[in-house]
Nucleic acid binder design. Structure first.
Lengths: 185, 185
DNA sequence: TTCGAATATCTTGATGTCAAGATAGTAACG
DNA sequence: CGTTACTATCTTGACATCAAGATATTCGAA
């Protein structure tokens, strides 16, 4: 077997258990004294993030993009004209290390989606800028990507959606995910 | 700069915006016609999963473990005595490919936390089993890990917690994350 | 001005992961 | 039996990522 098995197997009854319910059930049997209450939330958070990512990747692939490529192009695009950021700003926006940014930018430069140039005022600084081709492919992929995200969430009721959103906002507060980083509006 | 910057910067007022709010604000300015409603949820899901993972990693490191090591040890532990699964079962439980499982098991075997042996009834099958040392380190790390998860969520009110949980359960349903995989109870 | 500290980016080496395919064992069907 | 399909695991090669450190530039204080 080559790929991980992410599909559901049986179309079972209404209140079906998901993988985390099963895992919690196993712990309850094996280690009844262990506090697994937080697993219910954190386990789902990371598992579902992985499952969602797989679905997003499928759409990016239709445009010949890796999701990390799309992430960089989008960060540049939403920075506004002239669609330019420094590597350091990309580090912070994308939660990646500086070495990773160097590598990503080099690859995107080779594909013709971004350019690099030294800043004249501070020659330590590099300016990474989206090319026209970069703007184009980002726009095309983004439209499909947004539709894909909407499709993924289309199975949620309004109440579920807003519960999820409220809960996630609270998580953002707890995690201290303040919005510094990337160039202001 | 070597590490990504994940801390919040300013201890600002009550209804503070997080990084996703900022990103949505940028899109609203740059592409007002683009539907970014789903980004609010999916963006947070994946961003927060990454932020949480970084906090979990810190605790695993105190026990000399990578999180992928802990993941394997835990999957074996919760399978119940004799703490044994096949590589294929690990693939499915951990959402990884078979090559990755081979590599993980080899490393854990070298550290003395698991053993490998061929199944006698079906010699294609391998049995990966936790050693005593494996059981011990998993138990120690798991106690600290569970406490860490509880700590991370301690900033949530009961209402926020249950909203988040309800929302995530709905996501599990939407994503079809049925619990097959790993050996039954 | 000069020199040390700080900053921004890039380089290096190691590593975890995947996709694709190789190997070996089992099952099914004549 | 024997051949073919299937299954389980492992191997290989490519690659994204990270941590640590190297390089180049700017800033600040004596």
């Amino acid at each position: 077997m080559t790929e991980p098995d992410t599909r559901g197997s049986a179309e079972d009854a209404a209140a079906q258990a998901d993988a985390i319910d099963r895992i919690m059930g196993q712990w309850a049997l094996e280690c009844p004294d262990l506090d697994v209450s937080a697993l219910e939330i954190i386990g789902r958070l990371s598992r579902f993030a992985a499952l969602v990512q797989a679905r997003l990747d499928a759409v990016f692939a239709e445009y010949g993009l890796q999701s990390w490529e799309f992430d960089v192009l989008s960060a540049l695009r939403r920075a506004g004209a002239p669609y330019e950021l420094t590597p350091g700003e990309l580090d912070r926006a994308l939660l990646i290390t500086s070495g990773t940014t160097t590598h990503r930018v080099t690859r995107l430069e080779a594909r013709g989606f971004v350019t690099r140039r030294r800043d004249d005022d501070d020659r330590r600084v590099v300016r990474v800028r989206l090319t026209d081709a970069g703007v184009e492919i980002q726009a095309a992929a983004h439209a499909a990507h947004a539709a894909n995200e909407v499709r993924i969430l289309s199975g949620l009721s309004d109440a579920e959606r807003s519960a999820l959103l409220d809960g996630l906002r609270a998580m953002g507060r707890v995690l201290g995910d303040r919005s510094e980083g990337v160039a202001a509006v």
